[in-house]
Design a protein around this nucleic acid. Structure first.
Lengths: 220, 220
DNA sequence: CTAGTATTCAAACGTTCGTTTGAGCCAATT
DNA sequence: AATTGGCTCAAACGAACGTTTGAATACTAG
């Protein structure tokens, strides 16, 4: 019962293949035959181990999202404990766990960040609900932390700025092509994660701290 | 020959239905039978008028993207003519045409913005290439305009900031749910396009003007 | 070694997919 | 009135889809 020796090689192979193929062709664009063939397992293995294709999709997200949000909350808690809560440190605590996944090209984390960034805008209602509820506690924590760190920003304005921040991060993780498009096709330096974090943090910090127009102030 | 009387009602009905369904269920998730049924046309009509499902997808994008990019370039040219080129006016010229589509809920423009925002991160190689080449001239124009308006920003840093800007816009258009998630489920005010433009512009302008860290300066 | 459970496998299930076909319709042209 | 050509239609095509099945195999426990 519950052989812990190979630690479910088949499950892992399926999850890895699914992650890569979902990123490349989307959920509906990836067939079970492609998927199991790439994973090197039998066609029926997915239904045996996960129950259905939909359940597999959810499992793919759970495997990465749970640790990532845990890390985000842990970093925030560490900041609160050390008393060094500033807008910049909060931003870094938020984007850090995502960008660290980007660096994990071998482990497939890179694949997942692209899949995740793309899924924010795509998924079925059920999947979007799942992701939403996985993010909800994290969002709540960061919202209150930012409200305290930025008391001069009206709350509903801050909601939108967090939305913008979230979007910038999601898009940056997902769409690597636009950079080349803007730069005029120069995919040389690829992803220097450290430099990217600096650039992203500077951009987001400035955006969060942006001066208020009069039209925004009254709506507080 | 070329009856111009009904102006190809069938084609338009197909494009409208496709726009809505692609946004809702994705390209692969939308079947020709759903699509033609919703459009109120025969199943074979798509293949007759467009040739294939793929060709239809491209037509959906051409119909909206061409005018939008034309508008973007026109607004930029108008700014250059009147000599009022500032970072803020450039941003407004860029995001304006997109947000104006958002307001067009009746005409289906709203559907398209969500479809577009989602497609940046999803599409097949061929579709991504098509969109890329449709955007290329616009990107080039705005890139040089911003380089002139922001001479203090190193060029490769500016490329990334444009990337961030593009991402924020794309995500804002596509993912309406995150706002509710952050706000704690409060979909009351929906989209006030004017207020949204102010908020977005303030955020993006501050991000583009963000102070440079030393690590960014050396890489110029 | 044996019993029993967990996993893998090839084959087939019924359904739905995008596309094609050829007959039929309706207006404009000659 | 006859003919043409753009367009619509119901029906069918083969292919691919997600899932199920029941036998074969691998592994563990008694």
């Amino acid at each position: 019962m519950q052989a812990i020796k190979p630690e479910h090689v088949t499950r892992t192979r399926i999850l890895d293949a699914a992650e890569a193929l979902f990123m490349q062709h989307g959920f509906e664009g990836t067939s079970m035959r492609q998927l199991t063939s790439r994973a090197g397992v039998n066609l029926a293995a997915v239904n045996y181990h996960f129950g259905s294709k939909d359940a597999l999709i959810q499992a793919v997200f759970r495997r990465r999202l749970d640790p990532m949000n845990t890390a985000r909350i842990a970093e925030l808690a560490k900041l609160e404990a050390s008393g060094s809560l500033s807008p910049e440190t909060i931003i870094r605590a938020f984007v850090g766990p995502s960008l660290r996944l980007v660096e994990d090209a071998k482990g497939g984390g890179r694949n997942f960040t692209r899949l995740l960034g793309r899924t924010y805008t795509e998924p079925s209602k059920t999947l979007r609900a799942l992701i939403g509820q996985m993010y909800a506690p994290t969002m709540e924590r960061y919202k209150t932390a930012l409200e305290r760190a930025l008391p001069q920003i009206p709350k509903d304005e801050l909601v939108w700025r967090m939305h913008f921040m979230f979007g910038t991060l999601a898009y940056t993780l997902a769409a690597t092509d636009t950079v080349q498009l803007i730069a005029g096709c120069k995919p040389e330096d690829r992803y220097d994660a450290q430099l990217l974090e600096e650039r992203l943090t500077a951009f987001l910090l400035a955006g969060l701290l942006a001066p208020l127009k009069t039209s925004m102030r009254k709506a507080a």
